[in-house]
Structures are given as C-alpha cells and as structure tokens.
Design a protein around this nucleic acid. Sequence first.
DNA 1: CGGCTGACGACCT
DNA 2: GAGGTCGCCAGCC
Length: 121
Amino acid sequence: MPYDRDKHGPDRVVGPGFHAEVFALVRTIPRGRVATYGDIATALGHPGVARQVGFALAACPDDIPWHRVVNARGELSARADGRPSATQLRLLRAESIVVDARGRITQFDRLRYAALRSRAH
DNA sequence: CGGCTGACGACCT
DNA sequence: GAGGTCGCCAGCC
C-alpha cells in the first residue's frame, strides 16, 4: 500500500522525514521479535510521540514488517473498528509468536527487541 | 482561534 | 486490574 497523504496524514511529524525514519527502524526488527510504538519513538530521539509512530505505520509500504510493532503492554493495538488487526495476528503467528485470547503476546518481555528498547536519556 | 481526534503511554486512584 | 488525566502532533472542521 503506497503512502497516501489524504488517507494517512502528513509525511512529517516532529520534523520532515519522520515517517521514513520510522519505516527504516521498523525494518530492522528481526523475524520473531517485536518492538513497541514507544520504543520506536524513543529510539528516534522523540520520546512521547508514540501516537505519531502509530500514525506513520498506518501509511507504511508493504515491505515494512509493521506487524512486529505492538503497544507497551504487549498487545495488538485496536484499529478504527475497535478491534486488533486479524492480518497482524496472522503474520505474528506465522513467526511463531503466541498471542492469547485477549490479544496479548505471550512472553512479550522476552520477545521485545532489545536493540530498540528505551535508550532515552 | 478553539475543540476534537487518533495503530500511544506514563501516572495516579 | 480497571478507569481517568494529560501530553503528544497535525489535520480538519
């Protein structure tokens, strides 16, 4: 899915090129591992803009492993319809990541990609 | 200009 | 654990 400003908003958050930086970082998350929106924001030097990271991922290209990004509680974030993405769930399970009935990733702490964890300060 | 809205999150009851 | 508050940024009334 190509970037569509009308549907996905500005390709500019906390400065020009924010979306591209988010995509580049998400691409580094290994198969079978996950990261949080906040981890991405903090790693880019902008702790606190986790929401904007989510916004950016809504517009990401197909070759970005966006499904490996979940919220800080290790759950698949809800979409506009109030429910998590079935596609995200399928892609995660395809990587042997276990998601329980409430949408939470089992062993989240262990699967969280260390290289992107809160390196702020 | 003012208020509302998000694939969020840290804090406080 | 379940709720509520507030900060975050840009777009759109």
